[in-house]
Nucleic acid binder design. Structure first.
Length: 554
DNA sequence: CATGAGGACGCAT
DNA sequence: ATGCGTCCTCATG
């Protein structure tokens, strides 16, 4: 008698180089390709419409490929994965299986979910296999090399990664995938098909972006983008332009990497083949290969770090007394800060679910250490909702980077919120595209429209403060205050580090447990512009400024 | 386009 | 103690 295996798709939404799929096909008479729509990710503020649309496109593509090439289909189940798996693996509903195969996922939610599911499988007598493949290398293997603690610098990380040799060669899609039995295929009808956006609780909005989901378009993009080998070989990330659109100046492969539509290993070997033909190609960190290594880097650190997605209890994260001003946050999120370059980027994000890396830098710097001094966690959540390529490990890592909370510490280097983009796009075409209010503003004022004389504003049909907002902060003033605050936070950090245990830290080895909010003493009350505006925002999310002196353990 | 100051960071060795 | 760090800005030549 043959075996029935479930291939549980989560990320890794592809048929090529899918080790879990190959594992499922091994000795199986039937393979059930399954995806579970998890309500955990549904709802306001969770996953924005653009990423959901992208996901559904990925699922539709899988379903189509399975139908046309393999006489099979994708079975989409709905509900909490634990409930779904309980009924599948223990109650054998809607079908019975012997084996469960999936790809390893390093994110905390996935890890605890998968641990539970594994338990359920054991109880149901179902074998479980976990395959690597989302990253170039097995993260546990990398971690072992670093004795559990990966470096916080890229250089040493890459050095080690390169020393372990190239990742496994990518595998082709299987020649055949044994389909579920006809009886089951007949049983799983409409209610197991790919949902609509509406079912996901999203409004059916027009598709504004250029990036469609799926393995097929992902591979096509990889093919198209790598056809220009010279460009691939000489690619340097800092030299790409954040203001380019149609086409963007980068590969835009990130959403396909995030969902695993395209295998990282395939991308890697593709690049190396091109490098072989082009001597003098660019190098990490700026090269395209360097970008894959950055991904690997953040995945590794994210995997090894507790509370990686927040400041409290996060050992690698600087503790900084950010001040969340809700009005400013709202303005930033909606692209109404009064700084056209910042607003254009934020509107592109909301509209298309994508923006260039350096645009992400600019808006992140602006929200946190550059101008508004709001917490990077707010920014990370916003990106997590709106970006189609939002990737937990990379997103949180980059937010710590940009806010000078980890990885990068030169807080006096601040992106200018109006002139940074000028060198890329002197006439402001990008701004005009995403901030139509400024469409008729002369080049001279398009990045700083508040400086335009009234007559010019009238001529351009854009009165500042009426048709387009005044800047919510004065950059010169705000950035100086931010620098001062960062300096204070860093000094505090140094003081804590220098002063050893002596009565300020209860135990040198308590690390792990209850993150006792190192609430900074707030000696800097005279920072005018960051003071709370009557009740709309709290001083600091962790508020309680009660304790006057350094706490001792309760 | 290239260079240097600015104010002087931290991590890794 | 030293070297280095993907992706700053402004002023100079």
């Amino acid at each position: 008698m043959g075996k029935s295996a479930v291939l549980w798709f989560r990320k890794g939404l592809r048929l090529h180089d899918n080790l879990a799929l190959l594992e499922a096909c091994k000795d199986a008479t039937h393979v059930y390709p399954v995806f579970i729509i998890d309500p955990h990710f549904v709802g306001p503020g969770k996953v924005g419409v653009n990423r959901y649309r992208f996901l559904l496109e990925c699922l539709t593509d899988l379903d189509t490929s399975l139908k046309t090439k393999y006489n099979s289909r994708l079975i989409v189940l709905r509900g909490n994965p634990l409930d779904v798996m309980r009924s599948l693996l223990k109650d054998k509903q809607p079908f019975a299986v012997d084996k469960l195969c999936y790809e390893f996922d390093s994110e905390p939610y996935a890890r605890s979910r998968d641990a539970e599911v594994t338990k359920i499988a054991k109880e149901g007598g179902v074998e479980v296999t976990v395959s690597p493949g989302h990253t170039l290398f097995d993260l546990d293997e990398i971690l072992k090399k670093f004795k559990g603690t990966p470096p916080l610098s890229y250089g040493p990380f890459v050095k080690m990664v390169e020393s372990i040799g190239p990742p496994q060669t990518d595998k082709d899609a299987p020649a055949a995938i044994p389909a579920p039995p006809a009886a089951v295929l007949g049983k799983v009808d409409e209610s197991y098909s790919v949902p609509t956006l509406q079912e996901m609780g999203c409004e059916e909005t027009p598709h504004n972006g250029v990036l469609r989901g799926g393995e097929t378009v992902g591979l096509q993009r990889l093919h198209d983008v790598t056809r220009n080998e010279k460009w691939i070989a000489t690619f340097e990330k800092p030299k790409t332009k954040p203001t380019d659109f149609n086409p963007a100046s980068t590969t835009q492969m990130s959403p396909y990497m995030k969902f695993g539509c395209v295998s990282a290993r395939k991308f890697y070997h593709h690049l190396l083949a091109i490098y072989k033909r082009h001597k003098g190609h660019s190098q990490p960190p700026v090269s395209l290969l360097g970008q894959l290594y950055w991904r690997e880097f953040f995945y590794t650190v994210g995997y090894a770090t507790n509370n990686y997605d927040r400041m409290a209890g996060n050992k690698i994260c600087r503790q900084i007394a950010w001040v969340n001003n809700e009005e400013w946050i709202e303005a930033w999120q909606q692209g109404k800060t009064g700084y056209p370059w910042i607003d254009a980027a934020m509107r592109q994000l909301r509209r298309e679910g994508w923006m260039h890396h350096l645009a992400r830098h600019a808006v992140a710097c602006f929200l946190t250490r550059g101008d508004l001094f709001c917490s990077w966690e707010v920014g990370a959540k916003t990106f997590d909702e709106l970006l189609i390529d939002a990737d937990w490990s990379i997103n949180n890592g980059n937010w710590m980077w940009l806010s000078c909370s980890c990885f990068f510490y030169q807080f006096f280097r601040i992106y200018h919120p109006s002139t940074f983009a000028k060198k890329y796009d002197p006439t402001g075409a990008y701004v005009r595209r995403y901030v139509p209010e400024l469409r008729h503003m002369p080049d001279k004022y398009v990045y700083e429209p508040w400086k335009a004389p009234k007559a010019v504003q009238e001529e351009a049909k854009c009165i500042i403060g009426q048709d387009y907002p005044e800047p919510i902060v004065d950059h010169a003033e705000a950035s100086q205050e931010c620098k001062d605050r960062m300096k204070a936070a860093y000094d505090e950090h140094k003081a804590i580090k220098r002063a050893p245990k002596s009565e300020m830290k209860p135990d040198p080895d308590d690390e792990e447990e209850d993150d006792e909010e190192g609430e900074e003493e707030d000696d800097d009350e005279d920072y005018s512009i960051y003071k709370p505006l009557d009740g709309t925002n709290k001083r600091s999310r962790k508020g309680k400024k009660a304790s006057p002196k350094k706490k001792t353990k309760a």
